[in-house]
Structure formats: structure tokens, C-alpha cells
Computed example of a mutant assay.
Amino acid sequence: MISIIIINFNTPDLVKQAVSSVYQFIGDIQFEIIVIDNASSKGSIEKALINFPDVTLVKTKENIGFGRANNLGFEYAKGDYIFLLNSDAYLIDSTTVPLMITYLNQHDKVGIVGPNFIKADGSQNYAYGSLLEKRKIWSDIGFNKLSKEEWSHYATFKVCDVESPQEVGYLAAAGIITKKSVVDELGLFDPHIFLYYEDMELGWRYAQHDYGSVLLPSATIVHLGGGSGGSISKKLQEKIAASKKYYIKKRFGAFHFYRLQVASFFLLSLKRLKRRIS
């Protein structure tokens, strides 16, 4: 059985679309759907799911973030496979899920598989990325900027650009499948990350235990992009920045993190000085 976890935050109509696509395209695979309502304040998730009585609905008292909400959904999961599907994503064929499960079954050391994501108009959406490396971090703050040739190697957001299964740094978590046994062993998302970078941290952490993340270009899921999170407020921007800092500190250590902090402060001070002089 496959357990499908969908997080709702003020997007009941999108959840309905995602759930409907599962019923339409899942085929003969035994499945369950778990919807976590992340303390939504708009729309009615109950109304959206009225025609799907078998869906398990769990409501939180506060917005606990994307990662923790998925972790909560996992606590209710009974399947051998865990399918994390964004509310703003949906299936469009009956071959994608079986293909992803089959690949997992055939490769013991693959921890996560992900599809080629497209938008509603058929154009590509980002599907994977390289792990954030020190070289790119220093470039991002203004030191030794990446060349155009280097950029494609270090880019952390990429559309599917391969023609055969490819192990990658991490997979965009809008429609990924993993094994319950792997999650039991290593956990799902890091609960300290509220939003963004949780999928990158997951790919990095699984790789530390020799479980790869593989992009499957022949599997396709529509991901509208942006529909799940709504508009990005200043408070949310701060949470995203905090997620990035947490990831850097966790992966590279406190010493490297504070070096970056000092370097960022130095560059900012230098820019302010130049503005005063000019």
C-alpha cells in the first residue's frame, strides 16, 4: 500500500484537485490519503473533501510548517511507500506512480525518487537541484562570483534536463516517493526547518547514509508552484532565511556559519561606506 500525504494551508480547492487526481490515476494500487490541515483560516477543507470520505483528515492547532506537517502525516501512514504530494500538484497519468514505486523496488540504495515537474501549461517547473555548497554560498554573498560555466553545476533549482534516471543532490518535495522502512530508519523532514530547505536537507541526510535521490524523467507530475504557500510575507521570508542558516550550520558546522556571518557583515558595511562616499 502507498500512503499519500497532502498538506493544506488555505488551499482547499487545490487539495480537492490533488485528491481527485489520485483517485483518477492511481489505478490498481492500494492507497490511503492523509490530509494535514495546517491551521488554515480560509476556505473549508471539510467541504473540499466531502466526496472523499475515506481520506484521513488531521487538523493542527497552529501552522507547524511544511516539514513537521508531513512528519505528522507520516505518523498516520500505514503504507510501505510514502508519497508526499503538494496541494498544488496533481497526477496526470496512470504510469507515473507505478514507475516510481518499481524503481524504488529495484534499487535498494535509492531512498527517494522524484518526477519531472511541469506546470499546467506544459512548461517545465523545477524538479531538483544541487546541494548548496560552500562555493555557491560564498558567491551568493559577493565573494568570488560563480562564472556562467560554474553556475549550472552549483545551481540549487533546476528543471528536469536528463533523459534517463539520474542521481541528484536533492529532489523538490512536491511529489516524491520514499519507502516507509527508510523513513523509519532515518526520519522524514528535520522538524527545525519550517519551510524551504527541508527537501535539500533530506537529500543530504539520506546521502550520508548511502541512500540516493533519483530523478525519473519518464515520470511526470504537474506542480503549479507557489499555490501551497500563498504570498510570502515578511515573517515568512524571515523563516525561510532562518531555514537556510540552519541548513548551513547543520551541514558545514558553526565555525563556517559564523565566518559567513562576519563576511556578510563586512560586505554590507563596505557597500554602505561606498554609498556615503559617492
Rank of each mutant, 00 (worst) to 15 (best):
Y23M: 08
I82Y: 02
H223A: 06
W204Q: 09
K78E: 15
A69M: 05
K249E: 15
K148W: 14
K249D: 13
I177C: 06
Q30S: 12
R259V: 15
W204M: 10
I137G: 06
V222K: 06
E46A: 11
S139R: 02
L99D: 08
K78H: 13
S278H: 14
T56I: 15
H223G: 03
Q124D: 13
A39W: 11
S152T: 14
I33S: 00
V110A: 02
A89P: 10
I240M: 14
L260F: 07
L188M: 06
Q166F: 13
F252T: 07
Q30P: 11
A48E: 02
I92A: 05
F66T: 09
I112F: 08
T11Q: 12
I7Y: 05
K239C: 08
K234D: 15
L91G: 00
G227D: 08
A155F: 09
E167I: 09
A174S: 14
S213C: 14
G79K: 00
I82K: 01
G65R: 02
L224S: 11
D93Y: 00
I82T: 03
S231V: 14
R68Y: 13
I34V: 10
I33N: 00
D54Y: 09
G212M: 13
F189S: 02
F157G: 09
Y128T: 01
L260R: 04
M200L: 11
L49H: 03
E150Q: 14
S278G: 15
I5P: 06
T96E: 03
I50R: 10
P98T: 12
T156P: 01
L14V: 05
L268P: 02
G27A: 05
I2S: 00
K16I: 05
G226Q: 11
G226P: 03
P115E: 01
A69N: 01
K145P: 05
R251N: 07
F252R: 07
I232A: 07
K179H: 10
L267V: 10
F257G: 03
L268K: 15
L224H: 11
D13A: 13
L216C: 05
I101R: 04
K59L: 07
S3Y: 01
